[in-house]
Design a protein around this nucleic acid. Structure first.
Lengths: 327, 327
DNA sequence: CTGAAAGCGCTTACAG
DNA sequence: CTGAAAGCGCTTACAG
C-alpha cells in the first residue's frame, strides 16, 4: 500500500495536479468551478489523501510545525498545562506544536535547521548564537517567559510581579519581617533571580526590611534548618516561597520545629497545585492564568507569522492570590 | 542568507554530490579516499551544512523523527521524566523524539501521515484503525505501557503488579481490611482498572476480604468522606492509593476526621513524588524505575527499526516499596 | 573510485 | 479557468 499522492487525486478526478493543489489549499486568486472543486475534494476524501509534509516543506521552505523548545526545568503541572493549551491553540490554526525537551545534549541549531519549523517558541532563554541564526534564517522566534526580554513583541509573565504580590499579601496581613524561600535547582535560576528581585523591591517600597533569603530543598530537614535560621535574631513571621512545593517544605519544617502556621509563621506559595489544598494548613498561593499565558504566546507566534489573529487579551489578570489557611 | 546545500559542499570541495552524500552518510559499500573524505567533512563543517530533513524524508520516505503520542492523561512527574529519558536515548541514536499531546482534537491519522515518522511510540492506547493503518504503512508502532498488550515485543509495566505490591506490603504489616482509593479522572481509567484488579487478586491470594473501593478527589472533604465510609461497618485499617496525590488526599481526610496514620489507618501511595517525603506522616509509596521503563521502550522501538541494540535490562526490578511513616 | 541523472511529492510562476 | 514544467534538496541505482 503505497502512499496516495496529489497525482492520484488529479488522475481520479480528471484534472491536473495544479488544480488539485489550488482546491486543496484554497489558493487565493484562483477561481475553480464549484463542480470541479467538489469533485476534487470528494476524491481526496475518498482516497484518504494526506499531503506529504516533507514535500510541502521542501518545496515551500517552511513547514507547518511550530517547534516548542522546553528547557531543562523541573517539569511541573504549570508547564504541562501550558503546552497542552498551546497544542490546542496551534492545532486550530493548522499548525502542529512539537515539543522538544532541550537537555543541552545536542546543539539546538542542528535540530531547527533539520526540522525547518515555521516558527520557534522558546520557553527558556536561547543562546545568542541560536537566536541570531534563526532570525537570519527568517524563522520567527518568540521567546522566553521572562521579563526584560529584548523582543517587545514577546509576551512575558512578569516574574517579579508574582513575588511582589506575595509580599504585598503578607504585608497586608501585618507581617514585617519576611523571608524568601528559593529552590535549590540551578536550572530555575533565571526565574528565581527575578522573583527575588521582585520580593526585594516590594519590601523596599513598603518600608520593610530586606527579605531573608534562603534555599530550601524538598526535605523536611532542609525546611527545618531554614526555619531555625529565620527564627534566630529578629524572628521572621512570614515566608514567601518560590512555588508550592518549596512552600510545603517550609510548612513541613515549621511542623518539625514545633511551630504553627500561620500563628507563628505565615507561608505563601505559587502555582496552586492540587496538593496545596490538601496541606495542613491549606496553603495560600498565587494562581497563574496559564490559559491566558498560552493565548498570549500563541498570539505572538501567529502574529509573527502574519496570521490575522485577534489581539491577545489584556494581561492585567495574569495572577492573583488564592487565600487559604496558611497566611 | 540562503540555505547551505549538499551541492554547495560538493562544489566547494570539488567533488560530486554523490560523493558528498556517501561521505556524510557513511554509506556502506563505498570506499572514498581518506583525503576526499576529510575534505568533504571539513567543508561541510566550515559551511555549517545541515542536511534538509524534508528533502531526506521526501527522498527516502522515512524521517528521523520518532513520534511520541502522549494521551490526555493528567500529566505528572512520572511521564515527564519518562519523556526526558526517552529524548536522551533516542538522541543518542540520531533520532529526534517529538512529543505530540493527543487531546483527541485532531485525528491522529492526519498527523502521522503528514509527519511520516520513522516510528510511533504510543504511550496510551491507539484506536484500532490508527494502529492498523500505521502497520500497513510500514511504520513500526510500539505501544502502551499497559498489561495485556497484544504486541509481545512491547514493554509493559505490569500495572496490576504495582497494586499487588501495595497490598502485600499492607498485609505484611498485619492489615486485613483494606481499601483502594481510586482517582476520579476518567482518563486514567485504563490504569485504574488494572491496578484495582491487581489489588483484588492480591487480597484473594492472601485470604483477605475484597478491598473496599472508592473514588477520592484531591479535596480534603472527599478524602474525609471516603474515610468515614471506610470506617463504618468493619473498619478499614489500611488504604492503597492509586498514586501519591490520592494518598495525600486520604491522609488529609484522616486528619480531618481526627484519625491518625498509621495508628488508625495506614496509607500507601505510588510514584514517590518529592512531596511524599514532606507529608505528615511521611508517605510510604511505590517507587517506579522510570529510567528502566524508558530504556525498555526505547529498545523496543530501536529493535523494531532494526537497530542493533543491546537487549533491555531485565524487568524484575521495575518497582519497589519505599517505606516511610504512613504504614 | 566518482559523476550524471532520475525521482521522492509538492507548489507556483508561466502559458495557453 | 486549467495544464505542462520547473525546481525545492536529497539519495541511489547506473554508468563510466
Amino acid at each position: 500500500m503505497s502512499r496516495v499522492t496529489s497525482a492520484d487525486v488529479a488522475r481520479e478526478s480528471g484534472v491536473s495536479r495544479t488544480t488539485v493543489s489550488y482546491v486543496l489549499n484554497d489558493t487565493p486568486g484562483t477561481s475553480i468551478s464549484e463542480l470541479t472543486r467538489r469533485r476534487v475534494l470528494d476524491t481526496a476524501e475518498r482516497l484518504g489523501y494526506t499531503p506529504s509534509a516533507a514535500a510541502r516543506t521542501l518545496r515551500s521552505g517552511r513547514s507547518d510545525v511550530v517547534l516548542c523548545v522546553v528547557p531543562d526545568w523541573t517539569a511541573g503541572p504549570v508547564i504541562d498545562t501550558l503546552i497542552d493549551d498551546l497544542t490546542t491553540l496551534f492545532a486550530a490554526q493548522g499548525l502542529a506544536l512539537l515539543v522538544f525537551n532541550d537537555r543541552g545534549n545536542r546543539p539546538l541549531t542542528e535540530l531547527w535547521r533539520a526540522v525547518t519549523p515555521r516558527a520557534v517558541l522558546a520557553l527558556g532563554p536561547l543562546t545568542d548564537a541560536d537566536a541570531a541564526a534563526m532570525r537570519s534564517a527568517r524563522i520567527p522566534v518568540v521567546g522566553s517567559t521572562l521579563d526584560e526580554d529584548p523582543h517587545p513583541e514577546t509576551f512575558a509573565v512578569p516574574q517579579h510581579g508574582i513575588a511582589e504580590l506575595q509580599v504585598e499579601h503578607l504585608a497586608a496581613r501585618g507581617h514585617r519581617v519576611l523571608a524568601y524561600a528559593a529552590p535549590s535547582d540551578s536550572r530555575l535560576a533565571a526565574f528565581t533571580e527575578r522573583r527575588i528581585a521582585g520580593a526585594r523591591a516590594a519590601c523596599a517600597r513598603l518600608g520593610l526590611p530586606e527579605p531573608r533569603l534562603r534555599t530550601v530543598e524538598l526535605e523536611v530537614e532542609s525546611g527545618a534548618a531554614a526555619v531555625r535560621e529565620w527564627r534566630a535574631g529578629e524572628p521572621v513571621t512570614a515566608v514567601a516561597a518560590y512555588n508550592d512545593e518549596v512552600a510545603l517544605a517550609v510548612l513541613a519544617g515549621l511542623r518539625a520545629e514545633g511551630l504553627r502556621a500561620p500563628e507563628d509563621v505565615a507561608v505563601i506559595g505559587v502555582d496552586d497545585i492540587p496538593l496545596a489544598r490538601l496541606a495542613s494548613p491549606a496553603l495560600t498561593t498565587v494562581w497563574q492564568a496559564i490559559d491566558a499565558q498560552a493565548e498570549h504566546l500563541a498570539s505572538s507566534v501567529l502574529a509573527a507569522l502574519g496570521h490575522d489573529v485577534p489581539p491577545p487579551r489584556p494581561t492585567h489578570e495574569l495572577f492573583h492570590v488564592v487565600e487559604r489557611a496558611s497566611t
